[in-house]
């Protein structure tokens, strides 16, 4: 039985999960481990000059830890395991698409990301902070402006924290080809 037989994810969802896998697998060896996730977290924090021992920095890294723990739990692996693309798709889908883990696990990640992007806590993320975030995630330069436009639903030149969190939910769990959140990390 293949992964697609076993899971009820759509091709769109698979493409989005593949994008997330590629964000982690920067050495392109076809597997990811906890250090890859830690590396993504570090790149995000350093992009904003945020130390891992500030309150927002620690919150982000702890939230990332929970994502890895949830993934490993779904795959029945220990924390130091390495995960292939197929395993990653399956674990992420079981945890966050068909499973109940988005709210307790991935939403805190989105909130921690938004907290750091919105440094002055006015509920708005400006294009500079958005670009810093996207650079950390490895979004191609040309896609960053497109992604910003797709998430800025009211076209006021700012992405709100609410818009970012909604986009994250649509990206990780949704199956609507028309959803703006599909553009969270650029073209899928």
């Amino acid at each position: 039985m293949t992964y697609r037989d076993a899971m009820s994810t759509s091709e769109l969802q698979d493409r989005k999960l593949d994008r997330v896998f590629d964000q982690l697998d920067v050495n392109r060896d076809g597997v990811v481990d906890r250090e890859d996730l830690a590396g993504l977290g570090a790149r995000f924090l350093i992009g904003f000059g945020e130390p891992p021992t500030s309150a927002p920095g620690r919150a982000l890294l702890e939230a990332f830890d929970q994502v890895w723990a949830a993934l490993m739990s779904r795959l029945d692996l220990d924390a130091e395991s390495r995960v292939t693309r197929d395993q990653f798709r399956r674990g992420m889908a079981e945890a966050f698409i068909t499973g109940p883990d988005y709210e307790p696990v991935l939403r805190p990640v989105a909130q921690a990301v938004a907290r750091i992007c919105d440094a002055d806590a006015d509920g708005l993320i400006d294009p500079v902070a958005f670009r810093t975030m996207q650079t950390a995630y490895g979004t191609p330069e040309g896609d960053i402006v497109t992604a910003f436009g797709a998430l800025d639903a009211d076209g006021d030149g700012m992405v709100t924290v609410v818009e970012l969190e909604r986009a994250a939910r649509e990206f990780y769990t949704g199956d609507d080809p028309a959803a703006g959140g599909n553009w969270l990390f650029g073209r899928i």
Binding site: P51, P52, T53, S54, A55, G57, R58, A59, L61, E62
Partner: peptide
């Protein structure tokens, strides 16, 4: 120091 308020993991 805000950069040190949270203990390390």
């Amino acid at each position: 120091i805000p950069a040190m308020t949270a203990p390390c993991r």
